[in-house]
């Protein structure tokens, strides 16, 4: 999903940068607040960032005969809410832009918008929706990671189609073109990311039960009852 350095016209590059900046600033605030109020969560925060780091370095072959990589942002979004992932995703993208010539500084805003903002929010939204209807935790986690991954690549396709509409078929034609490159390739990779996220979440449930309960991912019987009661009150 990395739009290469210099491959967005200046106006687009600036616009995406302006759109992303508030999310990253807000994310940095919630990250420092989380660390200050719950110093014990620093380790798990690091692990969430590390997961995004590994997954976005894994280039995997796909059914379309090309390679792409997962994003790894769904896990952190479920654990710490999306704003935190805006920061952790930006760090990952900066590393790749500066050291790997993968992505770029002029396209950083656009890439942050797709991978570190829309992806985490879309995944988190799906997660919350499924949990509200008492879908099992691991199914919700899989869906969150799948949606976070796939939506990132859909946004990249839209960004490129906006910048480079097809001379004949316009925006939609270009969207089809970029979508077939990115989104279709990404479907099996999003499944892989979902499975890996479920794997890590299973390990977390075994190793960090207290932490997951504090973050609201695991529900103790007491809070579960409270939640059920308040849900009943709302429906009444």
């Amino acid at each position: 999903m990395h739009i290469a350095e210099g491959f967005l016209p200046p106006a687009h590059a600036v616009a995406w940068g302006v759109a992303s900046a508030p999310f990253v600033v807000h994310g940095a605030r919630s990250l420092t607040r989380e660390v200050r109020e719950h110093p014990e969560s620093t380790l798990l925060l690091g692990a969430s960032g590390a997961f995004a780091f590994v997954l976005s370095a894994l280039k995997l072959p796909s059914v379309t005969g090309s390679c792409s990589h997962p994003t790894g942002t769904g896990l952190g979004a479920v654990l710490f809410r999306p704003p935190v992932m805006a920061v952790l995703g930006t760090i990952t993208l900066l590393f790749q832009a500066l050291l790997l010539a993968h992505g770029g500084l002029t396209t950083l805003g656009a890439n942050v918008f797709s991978m570190a903002i829309v992806g985490p929010w879309a995944g988190y939204g799906v997660y919350r929706l499924l949990r509200r209807y008492d879908v099992p935790l691991m199914v919700s986690v899989f869906s969150a990671a799948f949606v976070a991954d796939l939506s990132t690549y859909c946004v990249t396709s839209v960004q490129l189609a906006l910048a480079f509409p097809d001379p004949g078929s316009g925006f939609l034609g270009a969207l089809g073109k970029f979508g077939s490159i990115f989104a279709v390739t990404q479907i099996p990779l999003a499944v892989s990311e979902g499975l890996l996220t479920v794997l890590v979440m299973r390990m977390l449930v075994q190793s960090s039960r207290g932490e997951l309960t504090r973050l609201g991912v695991l529900v103790t019987s007491a809070t579960g009852r409270k939640r059920a009661e308040s849900a009943g009150a709302v429906s009444r």
């Binding site: 072959p61 990249t156 990115f182």
Partner: peptide, 8 residues
């Protein structure tokens, strides 16, 4: 199996 980024 080239990268999708390059294809874009």
């Amino acid at each position: 199996f080239t990268g999708a980024d390059g294809e874009a």
